[in-house]
């Protein structure tokens, strides 16, 4: 296996044209996904996690204006690929599981149609009978009872958890090198969440590639992922192996985030901890560190100079002057 990472993102910036002006949703993201690892991407809502996922797939909405930087997938330069070659990567080498299984499946087509068309698009050269058989096997594999009946079911006839299993089955049918799971449990009940998480953990044995697991929950990510990248206001501020990150967080935002999660678990009536201040407005132009305004360690240079992402330990990178 080659040494260079499966996915390598450098200085990725994405601006959206909105009625209020230019929104800088991604402000120079650096992220590496090593082969065969589960990488957790953590950040609060609006930090640009989903936009990052869509940028990798080449599915940014039409109002995404300028895109800078580079995304290299294996040996493919994704940002300079033709629409057709991107399309052939999607559903073949890169697959995605979406956040809300209620709206991510087409309401007027059966589960079977969804699964068979994934195989069709992949162009495996097999016939419809073979596709049906593989769809059935996959439904059974993701723990859907009575798969033959479910194949003929429409999305509205399934529960949220079952729909997310169908989405996972779609993703697995493509045997991707990179699987992106965008908050796959956020729309589900807590009990269902646990089932889906254990299913994703199980899937590791089926997915030969890497997984990018997007979540707003540090706890979930620490359970599941090998590496963690922390995102704040459109940039990755810290990336490290999970154990290292939780044992030795370097960025003030990561530390605050870990504190907040610990605060949540407290039963002794302690006040819920939160980070003072507000997230940087995407419309704002920030010459310095995006976290400076909320950071207790901020010094003058943090406000007018952007810290570069640098290595502080093996496989541990952080974008902070004070780390």
């Amino acid at each position: 296996m080659s040494e260079f990472p499966l996915l390598s993102i450098r200085g990725l910036g994405v601006d959206f044209t909105t009625s209020r002006g230019r929104a800088h949703v991604l402000r120079g993201v650096d992220l590496d996904i090593a082969r065969g690892r589960i990488v957790g991407l953590v950040g609060e809502s609006g930090s640009g996690k989903s936009t990052l996922a869509l940028a990798i797939l080449g599915l940014l909405p039409p109002n995404a204006g300028s895109v800078q930087g580079s995304i290299r997938f294996d040996d493919v330069d994704l940002l300079n690929s033709s629409a057709e070659s991107l399309r052939s990567l999607r559903g073949h080498r890169i697959a995605m599981i979406f956040q809300d299984p209620m709206t991510a499946l087409n309401p007027v087509f059966t589960v079977g149609t969804h699964l068979r068309d994934v195989l069709n698009a992949k162009g495996s050269g097999e016939d419809a009978m073979e596709h049906n058989k593989r769809a059935l096997e996959m439904l059974a594999k993701v723990g859907i009872p009575d798969p033959e009946q479910r194949l003929k079911a429409y999305p509205h006839e399934l529960s949220g958890g079952m729909r997310q299993r169908v989405m996972i089955a779609m993703a697995l049918l493509t045997t991707p090198d990179l699987l992106i799971a965008d908050e796959p449990t956020t729309a589900l009940d807590v009990t269902i969440e646990a089932q889906i998480v254990s299913l994703i953990r199980e899937m590791r044995t089926h997915v030969r590639g890497s997984i990018l697991f997007i979540s707003h929950s540090l706890g979930l990510v620490s359970e599941l992922c090998d590496d963690v990248a922390v995102m704040y206001a459109g940039a990755v501020v810290e990336q490290a192996p999970s154990v290292e990150l939780f044992a030795n967080p370097r960025h003030p935002y990561t530390r605050a985030l870990i504190d907040c999660e610990i605060g949540l678990d407290d039963d002794d009536g302690q006040k819920l901890r939160s980070i003072p201040g507000e997230v940087l407005d995407p419309l704002a132009v920030a010459p310095g560190c995006t976290f400076a305004a909320r950071c207790s360690l901020a010094e003058p240079r943090c406000h007018d100079q952007a810290p570069q992402f640098r290595s502080v330990a093996p496989k541990h990178g952080v974008a902070c002057f004070r780390a």
Partner: peptide, 15 residues
């Protein structure tokens, strides 16, 4: 969103 799903799975635009 379900159209985005179809796109994410590489289905042909005409389909």
């Amino acid at each position: 969103p379900y159209i985005r799903t179809s796109r994410a799975y590489g289905l042909a635009e005409s389909k």
